[in-house]
């Protein structure tokens, strides 16, 4: 479970985000990306001295300004359970896939006809 996958799994969960400058943002995660850019909704912003508070309906935070995120303690367990469930589901699915694969083999042979033009392309490449 990589840190950013955990963040992805924390969507719609409450969290506290502290920026490098000490400001903190309390809110629910709406979305995030691989740069750790995030959007929060129903946000309480606190300045670095923790003596002024602002309420924002929604805010966007650039990932590079973040120091850390504090996320719900049970999230790791929740995610682990979800992964297990997905794995179980996959196992069931894979059995079907194996069945398909058997049936799929002739299709791969049929693709041999498509291999013709591919080979000629390779030949051209070598010539050039």
């Amino acid at each position: 479970m990589l840190p950013l996958s955990l963040l992805n799994a924390a969507q719609n969960k409450p969290m506290l985000v502290e920026l490098k400058n000490g400001e903190t943002f309390n809110g629910h995660l709406v979305n995030c990306d691989n740069f750790m850019n995030i959007t929060l909704r129903e946000v309480y912003q606190t300045n670095a001295e923790a003596d002024r508070f602002f309420k924002l309906k929604e805010c966007y935070i650039r990932g590079s300004t973040i120091k850390y995120l504090r996320i719900p303690d049970n999230l790791l367990d929740v995610v682990k359970e979800e992964q297990n469930r997905a794995r179980e589901a996959n196992r069931g699915g894979r059995g079907v896939v194996t069945g398909n694969r058997g049936r799929g083999l002739p299709a791969r042979g049929a693709r041999g006809t498509r291999g013709g033009p591919a080979r000629s392309v390779r030949g051209r490449g070598r010539g050039a």
């Binding site: 955990l6 750790m36 850390y68 995120l69 999230l75």
Partner: peptide, 11 residues
């Protein structure tokens, strides 16, 4: 006590 933390590596 703070619980579960995700720390950005830069820091």
């Amino acid at each position: 006590w703070y619980g579960l933390y995700l720390i950005r590596g830069e820091n």
